[in-house]
Simulated scan of single mutants.
Amino acid sequence: MARRLQCPCGEGFREETDDELVAKVQEHLAKEHPDHQYSRDEILFLAY
Rank of each mutant, 00 (worst) to 15 (best):
K24Q: 15
R40Y: 06
E16S: 13
V25A: 03
L29Q: 07
F45L: 13
H33G: 00
E15W: 07
E16R: 15
Q26D: 03
A30I: 04
H33P: 02
Y38Q: 13
P8C: 05
A2N: 14
P8F: 10
A23H: 11
R40M: 02
D18L: 05
D35E: 13
F45E: 15
G10N: 07
L29T: 01
H33I: 02
L44S: 07
Y38L: 15
E11Q: 08
L44Y: 01
R3Q: 14
Q26K: 15
F45N: 13
A23V: 11
L46K: 11
L21A: 09
L5I: 10
S39V: 04
G10V: 04
D18H: 02
I43M: 03
H33E: 05
D41P: 01
Y38T: 01
P34T: 01
Q6H: 14
C7D: 03
E11H: 00
H33L: 04
Q37E: 13
H28C: 05
Q37Y: 03
F13V: 01
Y48C: 02
A47L: 00
L44E: 07
Q37V: 11
Q6T: 13
H36G: 02
Y38V: 01
H28Y: 05
L5Q: 04
R3P: 04
D18I: 00
T17K: 09
L21Q: 06
D41S: 06
A47W: 02
E27I: 09
L21G: 08
E15T: 05
C7N: 05
G10D: 07
D18T: 00
L44P: 09
C7I: 02
D18G: 10
E27F: 06
T17P: 01
A2H: 14
K24S: 15
R14G: 08
D19A: 15
E15G: 09
E11A: 05
Q6I: 11
Y38F: 11
F45Y: 12
H36P: 08
E32H: 11
Q37S: 12
E11R: 10
E20G: 12
S39I: 05
A47F: 06
A47K: 04
T17H: 10
Q37K: 11
L29F: 07
E20W: 02
L29M: 11
E16F: 06
E27N: 12
S39R: 05
T17G: 05
M1P: 09
D41A: 13
E11I: 00
D19W: 03
C9Y: 07
C9P: 03
I43F: 02
F13A: 02
T17M: 06
Q6W: 12
P34E: 08
K24I: 00
D18S: 12
D35H: 13
E15M: 13
R14D: 11
F13Q: 08
R4V: 10
C7S: 00
L21R: 09
D41H: 03
L5H: 06
R14P: 01
D35W: 09
V25D: 03
T17L: 05
T17F: 07
F45S: 13
L29R: 08
A47D: 08
H33T: 01
P8Q: 10
R14W: 02
F13E: 03
D19V: 12
E32V: 10
Y48T: 11
D41F: 04
P34K: 03
R40A: 06
A30V: 01
E16H: 11
P8Y: 09
L46R: 12
V22F: 09
M1E: 10
F13D: 03
E27A: 15
R40V: 08
K24W: 09
V25P: 01
R4T: 15
V25T: 00
E11C: 04
